[in-house]
Each structure stands twice: as structure tokens, then as C-alpha cells.
């Protein structure tokens, strides 16, 4: 009996994996049905449906990048404090002195890549007509995920608290004050007043809610930090689960009817 066989025959191994190693056809089927991580997949699939020149693998890559962002992001959260006093210096230290400071590089390049891959995934799904019935609603969820990916990236952009960060967020969030009705420089906002008092001012409009203040400051940093690390990832996780579930329920990877 080799060591490998001894390990695979042990009670511990069997209790974890619930099935023999997928060496024969039967166990290759069983592994897909009994393993938590693999059960997202079907057991068998059309050959052309998984060809890289067909799927471009962009949805899968986007999901993998989301996981990379989660792991590197959690590691960065151990180190980084979202306060005016610490934010910039923590990033500086990540660059210059911290062991595994490369996590920030991976996090940033992964984020840029994720934005691109999620666009390409949408591009592919459109070009193969995969949004057509019965997959219409999953396309809608996909569009929401795309927006949330952009918002994840946008909220994360502020956290280094350097010139690049606050001015990019300032430029981006300045749009919000021109929101029709809800921005203090938006058309229709003047109509919302009670007895001569404006309801929409620069201290109560859409931009104020987004920034937690009248300009990009510590309240914004806190707000964006929580959006970036907690709020949006939670929503994204839920939508990803539905997105994947619907892929299976709507008939798997699209193929000619």
C-alpha cells in the first residue's frame, strides 16, 4: 500500500471528500454531484459550449478576479485604516516597507482587469445572442453586476487618499449635484421647496448623501470604505449566486437551439 493509498483510505480523507478520487468515469460523475465547490457545474456539457473560442472564459475570469479582490482586500483591510491621519501613510508603508505589500498592486491591477473582463463578458454574451429567451432576466442581473463592479472600483479609488484619488472622486461625484430634482444644481430642484425654503441644498442633495458632506472629506472616506468593503460586496455576492444559479436553470451555457 503506497502512502497515497493509505491517506485516501483513511477515515479523515473519506469524511472530507465523500467519494473516491475521480479516476474512473463513475467517480468523475459523482465528484460533480457531491463536492460543494464543483456542484455549481453540471455533470456533462456540450463540447462547443466550453470551447475557449466560444466563451472567451471572461465570465469565469471575472469571478476569479472577484475572489482575488476579496482575498487581497481582506489582507489589506488588516493593515489599512480609513482615516485622514492614516490612510495615505498606510498605503505608503504598503509600498515601501510592508511585507507582502504587493497585495495592493495585485488588488489594483486585478480591479482594473475585472472592469475590462466584465465588459468583455457582456460583449461575448451579446455577440452570441445569449441574452435571448430564456436568458433575458439573467442578462439584467448581469448588467446590475457590471454596474456594481464599476461602483466597487470607483469606491476603492478613493481609499489611497492621494491626489489621484480625491480628485477622481471629486470629478466623478460632482455629477450627482446635477441630478434632476435631487441635486442642488439639477433641473427641477428649485421646484422642491416648502413655504419658500429649498428642500434640496448643497447640504441635503444626492451628492451630499454620496459624500457624507459638502466635499470629499473624512466622512466620504468612511462612507466609501464601508461601501467598498462591506455593502457592495454583499450585494454582489448575492447577485453572483443568483447569476450562476440562473445560468444552470436557464439551460446552461448557451448553444444553438
Amino acid at each position: 500500500m503506497t502512502i497515497g493509498e493509505y491517506i485516501r483510505d483513511s477515515q479523515i480523507w473519506k469524511s472530507i471528500f465523500r467519494h473516491p478520487a475521480p479516476h474512473d468515469r463513475r467517480n468523475r460523475v459523482v465528484v460533480m454531484l457531491t463536492n460543494f465547490f464543483l456542484h455549481l457545474h453540471p455533470v456533462s456539457i456540450k463540447k462547443q459550449g466550453i470551447a475557449l473560442s466560444y466563451t472567451w472564459c471572461m465570465g469565469g475570469i471575472t469571478f476569479f478576479l472577484f475572489l482575488v479582490e476579496a482575498v487581497t482586500g481582506v489582507l489589506l483591510m488588516f493593515y489599512y485604516l480609513p482615516t485622514l491621519e492614516h490612510a495615505f501613510n498606510d498605503i505608503l508603508a504598503l509600498r515601501d516597507v510592508t511585507t507582502l505589500g504587493i497585495m495592493r498592486e495585485i488588488h489594483r491591477w486585478g480591479a482594473h482587469s475585472m472592469v475590462i473582463t466584465v465588459w468583455l463578458h457582456m460583449y461575448r454574451v451579446f455577440l452570441t445572442g445569449s441574452y435571448k429567451p430564456p436568458r433575458e432576466f439573467n442578462w439584467v442581473i448581469g448588467v446590475l453586476l457590471l454596474v456594481l463592479t464599476l461602483l466597487l472600483s470607483f469606491t476603492g479609488y478613493l481609499l489611497p487618499w492621494d491626489q489621484l484619488a480625491i480628485w477622481a472622486i471629486t470629478v466623478g461625484s460632482n455629477m450627482a449635484r446635477a441630478t434632476p430634482f435631487l441635486g442642488h444644481e439639477g433641473p427641477g430642484a428649485q421646484l422642491l421647496n416648502l413655504g419658500g425654503y429649498d428642500l434640496i441644498t448643497n447640504a441635503s442633495d444626492a451628492r451630499f448623501i454620496l459624500l457624507g458632506g459638502r466635499f470629499v472629506g473624512e466622512a466620504t472616506l468612511n462612507r466609501f470604505y464601508i461601501l467598498h468593503c462591506v455593502a457592495i460586496p454583499l450585494v454582489v455576492s448575492l447577485l453572483i449566486a443568483i447569476h450562476f444559479w440562473r445560468v444552470r436553470k436557464d439551460g446552461g451555457i448557451s448553444q444553438p437551439l
Partner: peptide, 21 residues
């Protein structure tokens, strides 16, 4: 897409691709 389009097992055909990716 319709030519040479038999069903294959996800393990190993898809799982390995994902792993390599």
C-alpha cells in the same frame, strides 16, 4: 457550434481548463 458537439464530462474537460486559467 453544431459540429463535433458531443457531450463531455465536466471533470476533467471544464474543471481543468478553469484550473489552468
Amino acid at each position: 457550434e453544431q459540429e463535433d458537439n458531443d457531450k463531455v464530462l465536466v471533470w476533467p474537460d471544464l474543471v481543468y481548463t478553469e484550473m489552468i486559467c
